[in-house]
């Protein structure tokens, strides 16, 4: 059962046009946890002088990863939508590095799922950004 859920969530995320546009790749998704990577690309740049990726692209990655974590939770019957998301930007991501986002669904009720997420680049010990969010829990 859990494996099926993970598979469905994986297929759903992989079919999102915008996730494809930003080059997101699912690494792991299971049991309320998701890890999605976004390789560096020139079209994601927010500051042409430094080549640093735009915060908005990191937001999109965190949002997708959070949604994936919710969908893969054993207690989630089906789809989800973001209710709110707060992102703290700790530092600029190093140009050229792949961004790795990890999200975990920390609590889930019949209606709401709570998520925490972190994004890192090659320097794994210093997060680029962290996020907390609430997601809706929707029926199948």
């Amino acid at each position: 059962m859990a494996a099926d859920k993970a598979k469905i969530a994986r297929q759903f995320i992989a079919s999102i046009p915008h996730a494809q546009m930003l080059g997101m790749q699912i690494e792991e998704i299971d049991d309320g946890y998701a890890r999605i990577i976004m390789p560096y690309h020139a079209r994601l740049v927010g500051d042409p002088q430094t080549g640093v990726i735009h915060g908005g692209a990191v937001s999109a990655l965190m949002d997708t990863c959070g949604g994936a974590a919710v969908m893969s939770h054993p207690a989630a019957p089906g789809g989800t939508a973001t209710i709110d998301l707060r992102i703290d930007y700790m530092r600029a991501a190093t140009p050229g590095d792949t961004i790795v986002a990890e999200a975990r669904c920390t609590h889930i009720t019949r209606n709401v799922a709570f998520v925490r997420a972190t994004a890192v680049d090659d320097d794994k010990d210093n997060p680029v950004a962290t996020a907390t969010g609430a997601f809706s829990v929707e029926g199948t």
Partner: peptide, 12 residues
């Protein structure tokens, strides 16, 4: 529309 697009649009 992707929530990330919306977020990026607002942030921009």
């Amino acid at each position: 529309i992707h929530g990330g697009v919306t977020a990026a649009f607002l942030e921009m």
